[in-house]
Simulated scan of single mutants.
Amino acid sequence: MHGFTTFRGDRGRGVLLRPTTAATAILARCLLWALLALAGIAGQGAAQAADPGPANLEPANLEPVGRSIAISLADRRLYLTDPDGGTRSFPVAIGRPGVPIPVGDSSIKRKRRDPTWRPTANQRRDNPALPRAVPPGPNNPLGRFALDLGWPAIAIHGTNDPDSVGTRASGGCFRMLPADIETVFAAAEVGMPVRVVRGALGGATPELPASRPAGTVAVAVKTAPPPPLAAPVSAVAIAKPPEPPPAPVADPRCATMTAPLRRMICDVPALAFLDGRARGTQDRFLAGIADPAARAGAAYELIQDERRFHERIAALCWIRSGTEGDPAVAAAAQSCLATALDRRLNDVTERIASLRGGTRIAGQP
């Protein structure tokens, strides 16, 4: 019979057990390996508890935030926030004076490519000449892309009147330039949150590029300006004072004009003043052209520009026969027309600059 040989001390306690067979020796080694393995696992767990790694992060913290849109009525801009936190902004046209503009939270309910425009009942009541529907094409005021929002008859869309973008000109929707709405349309998804606020969102903060990672803040480092350089005496001698703005010139046709838009301009002094500034700039330009044929050609171009301006603004501001009979409608039309006339001075200045290239001006080579 196999067994163990036991050595006892002076107190009778067993101090050594020696296996007397090969099987018991193998069993002892297995027990030793098991104890060592358990000790290693315990040490690894303690190390992980002392130094937590990425495996301890909450899964929710690793999920990127989706895209969203915010529109500021004060800025007249749309801000598109990307999943990485970068923000791009685009100019928009908002509702003209007197038109209610929705404010608050909504979302994109539908995406429409090459949409058909169907005027609302109120729009057709105010302007019976409007058709029931306008198919896709250059005459469609929605442009090529439209994002319908949760508010009835309100959308973010393109336009066939790019000059109106950045102004108060729409019927409550948010108009964008053709290239900008194409960018936003490609990034938008049904269900994307949209928030419209009255206050400013941009302020003096520069726009964040789409490639900037979330949480990155641009820091402007101020450096001491270089010491001013003394201006040469010759430069001071030939410096010219700034040219004063041209004096407004009244429209000589006011006594006989019957068109609703021209009558509104002639009858409202503030509008007549704004219109007169552009007219004064034109008259000063034409008076400086020495060649009669060139002067007549430039005058014709400016008259055509004015005619196109009147046609567009009369429809944009809904100025028609009988507008002056409703005080609220007349006030909204006058406010819209004031904005358009204020911008027209810049348009006339740019148009004159383009005409100078092919026109011989008196006093110039």
Score class of each variant (00 low, 15 high):
300 Y>M: 14
38 L>D: 11
220 A>E: 12
228 P>R: 10
269 P>R: 07
64 P>A: 10
5 T>N: 08
27 L>W: 08
220 A>D: 15
336 C>F: 07
222 K>W: 15
77 R>M: 02
364 Q>M: 10
304 Q>P: 12
199 G>V: 07
247 A>C: 04
71 I>S: 08
162 P>H: 08
29 R>D: 13
19 P>W: 00
97 P>Q: 08
146 A>E: 03
302 L>H: 07
320 R>M: 06
229 L>E: 14
161 D>P: 05
353 A>V: 06
45 G>Y: 11
230 A>Y: 05
177 L>E: 10
6 T>E: 11
270 A>N: 01
345 L>W: 08
320 R>Y: 04
231 A>I: 15
126 D>L: 12
314 A>H: 03
182 E>A: 09
21 T>A: 05
173 C>P: 12
8 R>I: 01
169 A>N: 01
186 A>E: 10
28 A>V: 09
279 R>W: 01
227 P>H: 06
11 R>E: 11
144 R>V: 01
68 S>V: 07
3 G>M: 01
73 L>F: 08
106 S>Y: 03
256 T>P: 03
39 A>M: 15
237 A>T: 15
10 D>K: 09
139 N>M: 05
179 A>T: 10
346 N>A: 15
348 V>N: 04
168 R>G: 01
59 P>S: 13
137 G>C: 07
249 V>F: 10
218 A>W: 11
119 P>R: 06
49 A>M: 09
358 G>W: 13
104 G>F: 12
68 S>G: 08
288 G>M: 05
357 G>R: 10
310 H>C: 06
25 A>Y: 02
36 L>W: 09
89 S>Q: 14
145 F>G: 00
130 L>A: 04
316 L>R: 14
56 N>T: 15
344 R>F: 08
247 A>D: 12
261 L>Q: 01
187 A>E: 14
146 A>G: 04
337 L>M: 02
121 A>G: 05
331 A>C: 07
46 A>G: 09
44 Q>L: 14
142 L>W: 01
256 T>S: 15
336 C>T: 00
67 R>E: 09
289 I>L: 02
27 L>Y: 04
316 L>V: 03
274 L>T: 03
9 G>D: 10
77 R>W: 02
